[in-house]
Design a protein around this nucleic acid. Structure first.
Lengths: 206, 206
DNA sequence: GGATGTGAATGTCTTCACAGCT
DNA sequence: AGCTGTGAAGACATTCACATCC
């Protein structure tokens, strides 16, 4: 299959979100222009994005909402379930551990780790916080699909290295450092600093 | 000035981060290839990105670290200070309110809002949580540069509308909805759902 | 020698525009 | 008539490659 651009995948995700809204309004069909209007893009863009994966619409009518949602979920790989470990039980890790959006998409948080003896052993949200020193062994025994890093900057690379040694295929990094990883690994960074600086740039002349 | 691509701005932000690392290691000059190696891009890309804004390097030597950092800060608009209001004092809002990275970049959190009577009036981190109903009036009296939305999905659009009515130029949205805003407003979305779905897509065949 | 800065070439993404289906 | 699906065109971004300078 042809390589799909990251920007396209992001938009597919958005379309899925918009379709949920349309479905909530009881609509059965939606046109590429309606989707485009909701998301600030163009109808041609929507059709092109979808066309990479097949042809799901009916000419003259648009796209059947429920069916397109199912196809998008399938395309995005949301049909299976994913095992997730969260490293760092501070504010960010805690917010993540309680995030309901995980379950909706088949993401199952199987373990939470920290270094702080005061936090290790405490139970948060039905999960016992484990010592990060057992992370690598745990992953060896019981691999996960995604390790979420919510540690301070100084610990992030060490955690990433351990995860990658155990073959973890994907990392979601909230720590304010850019991880160095082989390009076989999938890494996404959520960086407050980058967001702020992008806003700062945009505001520069106001 | 020529329109600069969003991707370029994001990379400039990254370069700044890497330069901080290099400075911490006591390096005085850095080549485009060193920056590229750290960030997973190419030296030509680094030089091209910088060249949009001027020529900061010395042939044969590379870029002076401290000077380039200063230039990047300037380009990114980090020379001034920004007033920020956070709406939503839950887990995400709380984590943000305590985030130290704000101050480093001249972002000053001037107020925190919530709807929950149990939270309104409590003091967190030296700031009293205010009733969100006073947001619009407060912004009218005392505008901010950025409103950060950390509310549930259902409240986000209402908050955004209020902020925009008061002329707030930029919004950083953590709520899991896509805001509808006029395109004069600058909006950035941090969406856990999008990140997860992008990972899901990347993991599809593993 | 070593590294920048930059036109030109290449590659990728988006938009156009229209044939073709319902 | 309305709207999709898609080649072709156009816009934009990245990479190449080299003259230029320290």
């Amino acid at each position: 299959m042809r390589k799909i651009a990251d920007s396209t995948v992001r938009r597919l995700s958005l379309y899925l979100q918009f379709l949920e809204e349309f479905e909530g309004q009881g609509r059965e069909a939606v046109s590429s222009s309606a989707l485009a209007a909701r998301g600030g893009t163009t109808s041609a863009q929507v059709r092109k994005d979808l066309s990479f994966f097949g042809s799901f619409g009916k000419r003259g009518l648009g796209y059947p909402v429920a069916e397109l949602m199912a196809r998008l979920r399938d395309i995005l790989g949301l049909g299976r379930s994913y095992r997730v470990a969260i490293v760092g039980a501070g504010r960010v890790g805690g917010a993540l551990a309680r995030y309901e959006g995980f379950a909706d998409r088949g993401f199952k948080v199987v373990a939470v780790y920290d270094t702080d003896p005061a936090r290790i052993g405490t139970v948060a949200d039905g999960r016992t916080v484990r010592d990060v020193r057992s992370l690598e062994a745990d992953l060896g025994r019981d691999p996960v699909d995604i390790v979420i890093i919510a540690t301070p900057a100084s610990a992030a690379q060490v955690v990433a290295d351990a995860a990658l040694r155990r073959g973890t295929p994907a990392i979601l990094n909230f720590a304010p450092v850019r991880l160095t990883v082989p390009d076989t690994a999938v890494v996404r960074n959520v960086s407050m600093a980058l967001e702020l600086e992008a806003l700062s740039y945009a505001l520069r002349n106001r």
